[in-house]
Design a protein around this nucleic acid. Structure first.
Lengths: 214, 214
DNA sequence: CTGAAACTGGAACGAACGTACAACTCACTT
DNA sequence: AAGTGAGTTGTACGTTCGTTCCAGTTTCAG
């Protein structure tokens, strides 16, 4: 009734065509890349547009505000990352020894600190920003809760007598190792230190698939 | 020879009077506060000036650029925090049980998530930014190394047979717990979960002062 | 074919940004 | 009394920012 020209599809059903959906997705991907290597402080609508190879005006069409865009980018990231974590732990079988479990975790962190570094940096950018933005905090909480449940199941499968606490410990150790080694180039000795910490943690927690069940 | 007016004391000895030093320090404190509750993305010279109750021009006098100011603020923070960590662990005696050690760590995290929340958020802002800025990365690395050495000494005092690895684990767990609970208000059940994770970690690592020495 | 709706993209807006600057005050030496 | 230089501050510069706008094109159901 009111809107005349080609305004943005703000509320209700956006009704995107296929081409529209592709562009929208490209914008979110570009945003994640920019956040990963320039940070949220360096994130501008123009930088996103350039990264995506789109005119500035396109961003206003698909996203009402920059904050909306950031929220959706975070949601996209958590969806993707949840799948990745699930896949990583799917490889942890009940026949594994503690060292095998530690090796899986080491590989996971190694990947995050090298090939997926941009994505990992973006993740922590989001987590910090969630401190100030309730909408991001909701996403962050939901994600963290889902992670803990999943890891809890794995811990249980590995014979933990307190899966919830073990999940909390494992997630914290992994997050801490990531953070602490983000500003350092990942040399072999660092990888060894990470491996040692994970081995010791997993071993001392008694997480191995061949443990007798209760 | 060249400078005429009251330009900034950029290179060589700045020659600050007492009043000048006070103002400089006030600016750094204000910057830390702003970073803590608006983030580096929300940090502007004007915001710092307002927070410090000073005119905008004062900032240009004491700091050549915004990046210089950020670097100095980070250095100030690490100096302060190193002292705080040292003080926290000074309370861990060799007669303590594992639960006492865990309680010290719980109190440390609790303080960071409540009273010192602003400072903690600022800390992680710096750590993420250090990913992109070599000067911040140097400070971050030096700080992290000093922490690990200190915590290693404590672990050794508590009977660890691998103090380096135990220090890495402890620092990571603490960092991870902080990060994971930053976007959540700290309710009693959360505190309990943190305590449980720390108890289990410390106990399983066998960190207690009454252990026999080698 | 025709109209409506999705989509495009360049231009332009006011606001906020980092930084530079110059005139000023004040404490202190000579 | 004159001078020197640290300290002070309001102002203004050029740039970049998020957002809006609108004339235009494409797509597709009726």
């Amino acid at each position: 009734m009111s809107r005349s020209g080609g305004s943005a599809p703000q509320r209700d059903t956006p009704v995107l065509t296929e081409r529209g959906g592709v562009r929208r997705a490209a914008i979110l991907e570009a945003a994640l890349r920019v956040i990963g290597d320039k940070g949220l402080a360096g994130l501008s609508m123009r930088a996103i547009a350039t990264e995506a190879g789109l005119p500035l005006g396109a961003l206003g069409y698909y996203f009402k505000t920059k904050d909306d865009l950031i929220l959706e980018a975070f949601e996209l990231h958590t969806r993707r990352e949840a799948d990745r974590v699930l896949a990583a732990f799917a490889g942890v079988g009940s026949g594994d020894h503690a060292d095998d479990v530690a090796e899986h975790l080491t590989a996971f962190i190694r990947h995050g600190l090298t090939e997926a570094r941009t994505s990992l940096v973006a993740e922590y950018e989001f987590l910090i920003e969630a401190t100030r933005r309730p909408d991001l905090a909701r996403v962050s909480r939901a994600w963290r809760q889902a992670l803990q449940i999943q890891v809890g199941h794995v811990a249980s499968r590995l014979g933990s007598d307190d899966p919830g606490t073990d999940a909390e410990i494992l997630l914290s150790v992994v997050a801490g190792l990531e953070i602490d080694h983000l500003s350092t180039p990942l040399d072999p000795s660092t990888t060894q230190a990470i491996r040692a910490a994970l081995r010791r943690t997993v071993t001392r927690l008694g997480l191995r698939g061949d443990a007798e069940r209760l």
